[in-house]
């Protein structure tokens, strides 16, 4: 992956190649600036690689148009951001139901309510993000990511803006939802203790994959 800055180009990622199987949990680790978030963004189709391809469920997403990618994303991919990225003018309930409405499903409120209950926010449905704590906002973001029951869930430093105890709670919830919904989970983290919970750890340095560690229990499903 190459980006231009003025008249110069900078290689963000190179020689990256790996496969992830269904239901697998993969952690991507590396120092700051190693390209972890960029790689995750590419997997979500938020950006387009300058070379190479990415296949998700037999679909080469790098050949999709922007609109096709958006439609693919809304059905197949859930994303959790470090900075939560909730819509500030929507309530918690509305934020969670939004992905369904984007698909044209206007009856997603009950599902949204159930998901918020499952993350312990049944009493915060009508609150706006500015009225929620960081941990609560991230739980709303989790619920939003899972409402479409995505086959692939991507999380970029989901606890990066949280204190350790809140972060631990959010991670537990993330794992719980992943197991509940059977999603493949790929998360970016600089926390090695969190990474250790994953089945595979991919280590990036200076935009290149330098190491891959597999947990003793590999996935049994087909390729994701």
């Amino acid at each position: 992956m190459q980006l231009r800055a003025g008249s110069q180009s900078v290689k963000i990622l190179q020689d990256i190649s790996f496969e992830v199987f269904t239901n697998q949990v993969v952690a991507i680790v590396g120092p700051s600036g190693s390209g972890k978030s960029t790689l995750l963004g590419l997997l979500a189709g938020l950006d387009r690689p300058t070379e190479g391809s990415i296949r998700i469920h037999q679909t080469n997403i790098t050949t999709l148009t922007e609109t096709e990618m958006a439609h693919f994303r809304r059905k197949h991919i859930g994303y959790v951001f470090q900075a939560f990225h909730l819509i500030p003018t929507l309530t918690a309930l509305e934020n969670v139901a939004l992905p369904l409405e984007l698909q044209g499903i206007s009856t997603g409120t009950s599902r949204a309510k159930a998901l918020l209950q499952s993350v312990g926010l049944e009493h915060r449905l009508q609150h706006y993000p500015v009225q929620l704590s960081g941990g609560e906002q991230q739980r709303v973001a989790l619920a939003r990511a899972f409402i479409v029951q995505p086959p692939l869930l991507l999380a970029d430093e989901p606890t990066g803006n949280l204190d350790s105890s809140t972060g631990a709670m959010v991670i537990d919830l993330l794992w719980e939802l992943h197991q509940q919904h059977g999603s493949t989970l790929i998360l970016v983290t600089h926390d090695m203790s969190l990474a250790a919970r994953a089945q595979r750890i991919l280590t990036l340095r200076d935009g290149t994959m330098v190491n891959e560690t597999t947990h003793p229990l590999p996935s049994s499903g087909p390729e994701a």
Partner: peptide, 16 residues
């Protein structure tokens, strides 16, 4: 811009 980018991340296309 950040809200537009977030909406696109959630699957909204440009025309929406």
């Amino acid at each position: 811009i950040s809200i537009i980018a977030t909406l696109k991340t959630l699957g909204a296309d440009s025309s929406q």
